Computed example of a mutant assay.
Amino acid sequence: MDISPIINQMFHVFWYLIPLIVICGIIKSPWFKGMIGEFMINLSAKFLLDKNKYHLIKNVLLPTEDGTTQIDHILVSVYGVFVVETKNMKGWIFGNPNQPYWTQKIYKHTNKFQNPLRQNYKHVKTLESLLNIGGEQIHSVIVFVGDSTFKTEMPENVTYGGGYARYIKSKKERVLTEFQATEIIEKIDSGKLQSSFKASREHVNHVKTIIKKKETTPSCPKCGSTMILRESKKGKNAGRKFWGCSKFPRCKGIQNIIKTIENAQAYLSGPFGSPWFRKIELFIEAFGV
C-alpha cells in the first residue's frame, strides 16, 4: 500500500507548525532572552537618561589576562563610569552581596546562578585597569528585567527595570571633568576588541571553559559557596577524600566523593574487571580527584 499520498496530505496540513516550533524555540532560548533584556535597557536609557549627560556604549568586548570579558552596557558621564550587567530572569530572587551564588525560585523549581555583583566585579576591574581610574569613579550596576521579584533585601545598585536609571541619576557629585569623560569614551573605543566573528567565537569558548570548570566543582549544599577537595586526617576515614566548604569553619557543609581512583582500583581488582574501572576512573577524573 502506497502511503505517500497520506504523508503528503499530513505535511500540507501541519507544515505551518514547523516555523512556529522554530520561533518558540528561539523565544525560549537564553540568547533571545539576553537580547530582549539588552534591548529594554537600551530603550530605557534613551528615554530615562539625558543623552547629553550620559554616553551609552553597548556590547563591549575587552581583552583580559585570561581571555576576554563582555560588558552589556557602559554609561559614561562626569558623574562616573557605570558598568551595567543585565539579567533577564523570572520568579523569586534570593541573594546577598556576600554569597557566591544567588537563588532563583519558580514554584517548586530552584536554580542557583552566579552572584551578578561578583560577575560584574571582573568587568569593573578590567575597566579600572584600562582607564586608570579609581573606585570612586566607577560604579557597578545590576539590572533585572522580566517577571522577577526580589525576596531578600538588595543593595541599592541591584535594581529592577528602570530602577537602574534612578540609581545612576542619584550620583550627582562630579568625579570626572568633561575632558576626562571624553577621553574615557575614546579609550574604551580604542581598547575594545573588534566585534568580529572570530572575537565573538573566542569569547564563547572562553566562557564555556569557565562553565566547564565550575561544573566539575560542586557548590556547598548549605551555603552555596565553592567547595574544596579535602582529605580526612584521622579516624576510620583517614585518607579518604571529600568535598568541604571553602567557608569552613563558618560553614561545615560537606559532600562525599564516591571513591578516589586508588580506592576504586583496589575495589575493582575483584570480579568487576578493568573495563568498569576505566569508566569509574573517567567519572572521578571529571570531578578533579
Rank of each mutant, 00 (worst) to 15 (best):
F272K: 10
P30H: 15
S269T: 06
V76W: 00
K125N: 09
V76E: 00
L75G: 00
V145R: 01
E178T: 03
G146T: 07
E65V: 08
L62I: 08
A165M: 05
Q99I: 00
K192Y: 03
F242R: 05
D147Q: 14
F32N: 01
K208T: 06
F113A: 07
I93H: 01
A266H: 08
I184M: 04
F287Q: 14
N111G: 03
L20M: 14
E215I: 08
S129A: 08
R118T: 04
A45V: 12
I185D: 00
I18K: 06
I74C: 06
L75K: 03
K90A: 10
K236V: 07
G34R: 12
A264Y: 01
I21R: 14
K236D: 11
F39I: 09
K234T: 15
F248H: 06
F11T: 05
R166Q: 05
L176Y: 06
G235S: 08
W15F: 11
N42D: 15
S274N: 14
K53I: 09
F150T: 09
R230A: 13
K122D: 03
E136V: 04
I36C: 15
R240A: 06
N88Y: 13
Y160D: 00
V124G: 02
L62F: 07
E186V: 02
H73P: 06
L131N: 03
Q265H: 08
R240E: 10
S269R: 12
L56K: 09
H109L: 13
L56G: 02
Y79V: 01
F179Y: 14
I36D: 02
K241L: 13
N256P: 01
E202H: 08
T110G: 03
N263W: 04
T152Q: 14
I26L: 15
P63A: 07
P19K: 12
V204L: 13
G162L: 03
G80T: 01
Q9V: 02
T216P: 01
L49R: 12
P155D: 10
W92P: 00
S200E: 13
E183S: 15
G162D: 09
K252A: 06
V84Q: 02
N256V: 01
V158T: 03
F242K: 06
C251S: 05
N132W: 05
I258N: 07
